[in-house]
């Protein structure tokens, strides 16, 4: 900590939000996104992970017209406006699903499992849904 930060009123914790479920089939993706958008206002260190079927949350070209549900995939684009910049996607999860970073609606940092596990192990709070 720098000397001028010592009087900072807030404890900054590292919060990681882990998404492992696809959108639409269940509500977890949407409601986790709602948490992240609120969390961004708290001046904590926020990161978001997409792994396993969670990578489908940020797949390009979602069109929900015919299922009658709200397409919230564009909202992920707002994460940048909320200063949520640490967005990690697990390489192995993309590979297993035949996807690459080009298939995703937002720019992300693609990490292999080993690198992602290092970052996970540095968190103070891990919230999964």
């Amino acid at each position: 900590m720098e000397p001028w930060e010592e009087d900072g009123p807030e404890v900054v914790k590292r919060f990681m939000y882990v998404n492992r479920k696809a959108p639409y089939g269940t509500i977890y993706a949407l409601e986790c996104l709602e948490v992240v958008l609120i969390a961004a206002a708290f001046d904590q260190d926020v990161s978001v992970v997409f792994a396993d079927d969670g990578v489908f949350q940020i797949k390009k070209n979602q069109d929900t017209t015919a299922i009658g549900m709200k397409n919230f995939s564009n909202t992920y684009r707002a994460l940048d406006d909320y200063d949520v910049e640490k967005i990690y996607v697990e390489q192995e999860s993309l590979d297993a699903r035949g996807l690459t970073a080009d298939d995703l609606i937002i720019p992300v940092e693609v990490l292999n499992a080993e690198s992602l596990s290092e970052i996970m192990a540095q968190q103070d709070v891990v919230i999964s849904s």
Partner: peptide
Amino acid sequence: LGQLVEAG
């Protein structure tokens, strides 16, 4: 939802 972040 802020109450959840606060709990964290």
